[in-house]
């Protein structure tokens, strides 16, 4: 499979957008090299603002640029983008109804060697509490490009979790995407894996391959936008499979799992299990180690799917 570096796709997409639209500007807080946007700076130096190690100021300046009619993309590690700039993003950008595109890189275990201080398991969750904010996380280079373009066109703030590393392409190049609309990657009848982000979606797809060998037909949904959540699709697959597993590189508290649980419990109570980090801090290690440590593997997803199916079948037996 074709591996592409996500940050390179991100920077390339921003440059394409900037070439068409003079309102696109870039902000960095001394992590330009990590974000991979030095190429943007080289091409559009006058539209690039590196504020140094001052994330709160970066988001405030982005809000001001937006008030001046620009469409700012501001990047930093997800831990800083969320925890360190929350009030600036909340008030100066969102409350002011401006148009700031905040990007938090290195979501969850992808922070790897930077360890627990730099490992955001809660960023999407705390962002989900901001009224009207669109929160999303692409899972491959194709969806990344399409969703960044959508984000630029969206009138209002967005928060994107960006997995920076090289990962495999899942979607065909001409696939179309819409913020707020999940994608069914694999259809199935017995259980549904709703996943978000590069790690969880890839592992969920592999889990479906494992499960099919046991004769279990698992649907896999890429729920790239966790806010607004695609209620219609969640309910459709709850009705179709009667068992939902959510998979995320994030706390199960207030992330995708919560969003899906809220939808189901209000509209169509369905057996479900939330997979992700269960009320723990991050820690240091290779991404591979950390995926094992926090259960973000196809093997664990498949095992949990089997458990869930067992419960579903027991309930069905009892009701008969």
């Amino acid at each position: 499979m074709n591996q592409l570096e996500m940050r390179a796709i991100y920077a390339q997409t921003l440059m394409e957008l900037a070439a068409q639209d003079s309102r696109i500007v870039l902000l960095e807080a001394d992590l330009m090299k990590a974000s991979g946007t030095t190429v943007f700076r080289d091409r559009f130096p006058e539209r690039t603002f590196n504020v140094g190690v001052a994330e709160a100021n970066m988001v405030g300046v982005a809000a001001g640029l937006s008030a001046g009619g620009k469409i700012p993309f501001a990047n930093t590690f997800g831990c800083f983008a969320s925890r360190r700039t929350y009030d600036q993003f909340f008030i100066s950008a969102n409350y002011a109804r401006l148009n700031v595109k905040l990007v938090g890189t290195d979501p969850g275990v992808s922070a790897a060697y930077n360890g627990g201080t730099h490992m955001p398991f809660e960023d999407a969750g705390i962002m989900r509490n901001i009224p009207k904010l669109v929160v999303f996380e692409p899972c491959d280079p194709v969806s990344l490009k399409a969703l960044v373009i959508q984000s630029a066109r969206h009138q209002g703030c967005t928060y994107m979790r960006l997995h920076r590393k090289a990962i495999e392409t899942i979607y065909p190049e001409n696939e179309t995407f819409e913020l707020g609309k999940g994608k069914v990657l694999n259809d199935g009848n017995d259980v549904t894996l709703i996943a978000v982000g590069a790690i969880a979606v890839a592992e969920a797809l592999k889990a479906a391959e494992i499960l099919i060998k046991d004769g279990i037909s698992a649907a896999v949904i890429d729920m790239h936008t966790i806010k607004p959540i695609d209620t219609e699709l969640v309910l459709q697959y709850a009705k179709k499979t009667g068992a939902i597993l959510t998979c995320e590189n994030h706390q199960v508290i207030n992330g995708l799992g919560s969003a899906v649980a809220e939808t189901l419990s209000e509209d169509y109570p369905t057996l479900m299990k939330r997979l992700g980090v269960d009320d723990e801090f991050g820690e240091v290690g290779t991404q591979e180690y950390l995926q094992e440590r926090f259960g973000m593997t196809a093997k664990n997803y498949a095992a949990c799917a089997r458990e869930l199916l067992k419960k579903k079948n027991n309930i069905q037996k009892k009701s008969k």
Partner: peptide, 19 residues
């Protein structure tokens, strides 16, 4: 500019000046 959470206006003013 919307303000009220102290300290934030200076950053917004910088952004407007840059724009």
């Amino acid at each position: 500019m919307s303000t009220g959470s102290l300290g934030q206006g200076i950053s917004a003013a910088i952004g407007i000046a840059l724009a």
